[in-house]
Simulated assay, not measured.
Amino acid sequence: METIYIKNMVCNRCIVSVLNIFKTEDYTVESLKLGEVVAIKGLKSEFSNLSNALEKAGFKIIENDNDALIEKIKVALIHKIEIGETANLFQALAEKFGKTEAALSKLFSKSEGLTLEKYTINLKIEKVKEHIQLGQLNFSEIAYSLNYKTSSHLARQFKTVTGMSMSDYKSLGSWDRKTLDRIV
Rank of each mutant, 00 (worst) to 15 (best):
D65L: 13
G58L: 05
F47M: 13
N66D: 15
E55M: 14
L34T: 03
N49V: 09
C11E: 01
A53V: 00
K44D: 09
L19W: 02
K44W: 03
S51Y: 07
E63P: 05
V38A: 09
N12H: 09
I61K: 06
N49T: 10
F22Q: 03
S31Y: 11
F59R: 01
S31F: 09
D67V: 04
A57K: 15
E30D: 12
L34F: 04
I61G: 06
L50Y: 06
N12R: 13
D67Y: 02
E46C: 13
N52Q: 11
G42Q: 05
V29P: 04
L19A: 09
S48L: 14
V18C: 09
S17V: 09
T28F: 11
V18H: 07
K60M: 07
V16L: 12
E55S: 15
A53Q: 07
G35Q: 07
R13L: 06
G58H: 05
C14F: 06
G42W: 01
A57W: 09
S17C: 08
C11N: 14
Y27S: 01
L43H: 09
N20P: 00
V18K: 09
L43T: 08
S51C: 09
V18D: 07
K60F: 05
I61L: 13
E36N: 08
V29G: 01
K41N: 10
E30C: 06
E30F: 10
D26E: 13
K44C: 05
A68L: 03
E55P: 06
L43S: 12
N49A: 14
D26F: 10
A39M: 10
K33L: 05
K56T: 14
D26C: 11
G35N: 04
V18Q: 07
K60R: 15
N52S: 15
N49S: 15
L34Q: 00
V37L: 08
L19R: 11
T24K: 15
G35T: 05
F22E: 04
R13T: 06
V18A: 11
S48R: 13
L19P: 04
S48M: 14
T28M: 08
R13V: 02
A57C: 12
V16Y: 06
N52L: 11
K56N: 14
C11F: 04
D67E: 15
I62R: 05
K60E: 11
T28E: 10
C11T: 02
V29H: 03
V37S: 03
C14Q: 02
K41D: 06
I62N: 02
A57D: 14
L32M: 07
V38Q: 14
R13C: 02
V16E: 12
N66C: 03
Y27W: 11
N52D: 11
I21T: 08
I40D: 10
N52M: 11
T24F: 08
S51R: 14
E55H: 11
I62T: 05
S31G: 03
G35W: 02
N20K: 15
T24C: 00
L54T: 03
R13S: 09
D67C: 03
F22G: 04
D67Q: 06
G35L: 06
A39T: 11
E25Q: 15
N49C: 12
L19I: 01
D67H: 01
L54W: 05
S31T: 12
E30M: 12
K33W: 02
K33A: 12
R13Y: 04
V37R: 03
N20C: 05
S17R: 13
G35C: 08
T24D: 10
A68G: 01
N20I: 00
V38M: 13
Y27F: 12
E25H: 07
I15W: 04
